[in-house]
Computed example of a mutant assay.
Amino acid sequence: MYTFEIIVGTTLGSAEYVADHLTEKLIDQGFQVNIHLDPQLKNLPINKNNPWIICTATHGAGDYPDNIAPLAQQLAQDRPDLSNVRYSIVALGSKSYDQFCNAGHMIDRQLAQLNGEKVAITLEICTLETPIPEDAIDIWYPEWAKNWL
């Protein structure tokens, strides 16, 4: 059985709420979950039994939230081989900005360059169109979960 590593990038809390909702769904299906609110590369298992779910908002002009930016820097500096990591991206943002969901797309490109295996299309959540961002998980989850069950 998998233990999911949910890596959260948040500024105002929306991504954390989405991660918490996703955690409930995973636990209800019998999975174990670790949530990383201060993600550090040294604390993330790099193996097939611990898939990563990056749940991140986009801050400012397309930037990472402050709490996940150090992880992106660690990945860029250390360049670990992530060929044993399966991952998914949940990106939050507002379509009123040019850089909609840019943080999610940046970390996605970074993980792909490090040989991570992406298992689903990125879920983009527009916080203007979805006032309760957690609701988007309910729609996305059944199809996504087929990768793991």
Rank of each mutant, 00 (worst) to 15 (best):
G104P: 08
Y2D: 00
K48S: 12
F4V: 03
K25T: 05
S14R: 10
D28I: 00
V119S: 05
T127R: 03
C101W: 02
V33N: 09
S83G: 01
L22E: 05
N50E: 06
T58H: 10
K48V: 03
E134P: 01
W140V: 04
I89V: 14
N147R: 13
Q99W: 08
E134R: 01
T3S: 06
D20W: 03
S88R: 06
A120S: 14
I125W: 02
R86K: 15
K95G: 15
A76T: 14
R79Y: 09
T130E: 15
P51F: 11
D20Q: 13
E24P: 00
L12Q: 11
N34F: 11
I27L: 05
A145T: 08
T11M: 07
D81F: 15
P45T: 08
C55F: 07
W52F: 08
A136S: 12
T56A: 03
Q113P: 00
M1C: 04
V18L: 04
W148V: 01
N50V: 03
L75M: 13
E5K: 15
L149D: 09
T3P: 01
C101F: 09
N67D: 10
E117A: 06
Y2G: 01
D135R: 10
L111Q: 00
I53W: 03
N49P: 02
I35R: 12
K48T: 07
D78H: 12
M106V: 00
N50Y: 11
W140L: 05
G9W: 04
T56G: 01
L149F: 07
E5P: 00
I46V: 13
L123C: 14
H36V: 04
V85L: 10
N115W: 11
P80I: 11
I107M: 01
G93S: 15
G104N: 05
A72W: 09
W140D: 08
N147H: 10
G13S: 05
A15S: 13
Q29I: 00
E129V: 13
D135H: 14
A69G: 01
S83M: 10
T10Q: 02
N102R: 11
V33E: 03
L82R: 07
K48E: 12
Y141Q: 07
Y64F: 15
T23E: 09
A15H: 04
G30I: 10
N50S: 13
L149S: 14
E16A: 04
A57D: 01
K42D: 11
L123H: 06
E134Q: 15
A57L: 12
D38F: 09
Q32Y: 04
P45M: 10
S94W: 02
P39K: 01
I132T: 15
G30Q: 03
A15C: 07
I7S: 04
N67Y: 04
Y64T: 06
W52T: 01
Q29L: 07
E124D: 14
